[in-house]
Design a protein around this nucleic acid. Structure first.
Length: 632
RNA sequence: GCCCUCGUAGCUCAAUGGAUAGAGCGACCGGCUUCUACCCGGUUGGUUGGGGGUUCGACUCCCUCCGAGGGCGCCA
């Protein structure tokens, strides 16, 4: 688990230090897409970890790694499996696996030279190598090799993206609005990020279970049900369907605070609800259904995958709560504190520096969210059989989840390979760098935000694309508006706060959805004008201009971009790649005439490059949940 | 008070412990009028909040200080 830190680092004695010095093997690692200077290609670092991957796939760097693996083994004299994936690195380091590199005690340049000598054979016809800098191997691919790999990627329905080597069953917990409460900006990030992760995980071959952990249980439901009865069921249904959930909730709350009789009825209603009274449950279900219908309209507007089938509300864990307590008790973990049943996971302290408990049963005998989160882990691991549990929840809840998972580990419910990951994210800020609010200071309703995005998108299209029909303008404008909001959210490192800025996210310049969508539409436009159909999967690609080469190498990096985004649960990795791709395409487009190319084989080859670029843009944005218009 | 996250160009953001820290916007200079743009190229811009440490090598890891935000017993 997380190390609380604070310990003083032990001082190394100087002899030991001398003996351990000279790290130097520095095995092979893939260093980056393409080099800055146009002529060169991808580079390989004789620097850090071995990222040799086995299966043969379209990505040329993996091919190179495979070819070089024996060379490394010979040079390093290492018998061990040289496969270390990026995600294993931290683990490898702590286990002392990786630093085997450091045990050779030789100069990196010499090692690099030795690798170079051994590599010329295996890499013949693939790439040439040269030693550079403090022990880097620069790798320049042969054109013929790149052309071959590119053709292979184009024929692959997966566009060169590898499947996960060990597919898992993954639960993604995201969105999680509350019944009878409005969805606001706070739900934007969890919904969008969760949706993108689901799409990416499925794409690389994992089995994904979406779970929308809605807040459909607890004491507020007493007053909500009583308010529903006061209004009359038909009137209440009407109000809820209009989507004025906050109004409904506020009225109930106001009555609860002002009216003792109402308060009393509410309390009795909570008891009835928890006791399973059929009529109360029926009314409760009515509230849940009305809210779910409302959530679904929001999800459809936003274009995310969630449906009613994904609902896994807190109430569904209700039957498990007694079991949770029973098991904790049996494990000897349960303690009594101030009348409540609690567990003390080690490593957490409160304001006074005393151990901080996780309360699993309140003093009044009721359960709280910690209890249902515990039940939730049991359910996901034992019933669903998931090994990876993702919680796409805001950063403020980090400590809560750490405590819950710690208790799960102590109780033995959460053991490898099963593990939980908090996919946390920062806040959405206004231009004042404070929490994003309306001008009047209220929280921003999510529907309002979505509607404004669509309006702005449509306005944008009307201005720029007067030649499109009104219907098309609306259709495309919707994609642009929604895409802009999603992309702005996904394109920055999720852990950080970001500033919500309509003008920037809707700009056609810079790292934005409209820029990428436009690059795609532009390619489609070429094909509408072409008098022949050329698909990348049946046309050989020939690289002539440096811009073609740069684009080609970028296209081959799709696999790496997707893999990184998935492994780190960081959609912005994919965004950065797509932006780079669009920029490379634009450079190509400026420099290389496609339809007007003199030579027909070049023309076909360029059309093929265009086609593959469009397919990757389409697919890549699709993995982010962003729609891509064919014209705009 | 303790704990967590963040701090990178004027602005908005990138960067597995690797090469000279990169983009976009803005600004400045120069081109272009095109297979879809208000486009293209170039220049400008940095003590990566400060200081120390580990390392062959630190934006990245550790310590410390400063600043911003968040969390800390019966809400979720």
């Amino acid at each position: 688990m997380r190390d609380a830190g604070g310990g003083e680092r032990p001082r190394q004695d100087s002899n030991l230090r001398t003996r351990l010095r000279r790290p130097t093997l520095y095995p092979l690692s893939y260093e980056g897409g393409t080099s800055k200077d146009t002529g060169a290609a991808a580079m390989v670092t004789v620097a850090r970890s071995v990222t040799v991957t086995l299966a043969g796939m379209a990505d040329p760097l993996h091919t190179v790694s495979s070819l070089l693996a024996p060379v490394y083994r010979a040079v390093a004299g290492v018998d061990a499996d040289p496969v270390v994936r990026a995600s294993d690195r931290a683990d490898a380091q702590s286990n002392g696996v990786l630093p085997l590199a450091k045990q050779l005690g030789r100069n990196p340049r010499d090692v690099a030279a030795e690798v170079l000598a051994g590599a010329s054979g295996p890499l013949a016809g693939v790439a040439t190598l040269e030693v550079a800098g403090p022990g880097f191997l620069n790798l320049t691919f042969e054109d013929a090799f790149v052309e071959r790999e590119l053709t292979a990627a184009a024929r692959d329905p997966h566009l060169g993206v590898r499947r996960a080597t060990s597919p898992e069953r993954v639960v993604v917990d995201y969105s999680a609005p509350n019944v009878a409460k409005e969805m606001h900006v706070g739900h934007l990030r969890t919904t969008i990020i969760g949706d993108a992760l689901v799409r990416m995980l499925e794409f690389v071959g994992h089995e994904v279970i979406r779970e929308n952990h809605i807040g459909d249980w607890g004491t507020p439901f007493g007053m909500l049900i009583e308010h529903l009865l006061d209004l009359g069921e038909t009137e209440a249904a009407r109000e809820l369907s209009v989507g004025d959930l906050d109004g409904f909730y506020r009225q109930a709350r106001a009555k609860f605070d002002a009216d003792d009789d109402f308060k009393q009825r509410s309390r009795l209603r909570v008891v009835a609800l928890q006791g399973g009274d059929p009529e109360t449950l029926r009314l409760w279900q009515e509230l849940v259904d009305a809210s779910a219908a409302y959530f679904n309209t929001v999800y459809r507007k936003l274009g995310v995958l969630l449906t009613s089938a994904d609902l896994a509300g807190e109430s569904s864990y209700h039957p498990l709560l007694d079991e949770v307590i029973r098991r904790l008790d049996a494990a000897g973990l349960l303690e009594e504190s101030d009348g409540a049943d609690v567990v003390f996971p080690p490593g957490f302290t409160n304001r006074e520096g005393e151990p901080l408990p996780l309360i699993v049963r309140k003093g009044n005998g009721g359960f709280n969210y910690a209890t249902s989160d515990l039940a939730c882990v049991i359910d996901r691991v034992e019933r669903l059989g998931a090994t990876l549990l993702l919680y796409v929840v805001g950063a403020p809840q980090a400590q809560h989840f750490e405590m819950v998972w710690k208790v799960c580990e102590m109780a033995g419910w959460l053991a490898p390979p099963a593990r939980c990951v908090h996919v946390q994210f920062g806040s959405v800020l206004g231009s004042d760098r404070k929490m994003f609010k309306t001008r009047s200071g209220d929280t921003v309703k999510l529907v309002d935000l979505i509607d404004e995005a669509v309006d702005r998108g449509i306005a944008q299209v009307r201005e720029r694309s007067a030649d499109l029909s009104p219907t098309e303008q609306e259709h495309v404008g919707r994609m642009i508006g929604i895409g802009a909001v999603k992309y702005a959210d996904l394109s920055t490192d999720r852990i950080k706060d970001y500033v919500f800025d309509w003008d920037r996210m809707l700009s056609f310049d810079g790292n934005t959805a409209p820029y990428l969508q436009y690059a795609h539409a532009r390619i489609r436009s070429i094909f509408r004008k072409a008098d022949e159909v050329v698909a990348s999967y049946d046309t050989p690609i020939r690289l002539v201009a440096p811009e073609e080469r740069a684009l080609a190498l970028r296209l081959l990096g799709f696999d790496q971009a997707v893999t990184e985004a998935v492994e780190r649960f960081s959609p912005h990795r994919l965004c950065s790649y797509l932006f780079d791709l669009a920029q490379d395409f634009t450079a190509f487009y400026e420099a290389c005439p496609v339809l007007r190319a003199d030579d027909s084989s070049i023309r076909r080859s360029r059309l093929s490059l265009c086609d593959l670029t469009a397919r990757i843009l389409d697919r890549g944005l699709g993995l982010l949940g962003i729609d891509v218009p064919d014209r705009m």
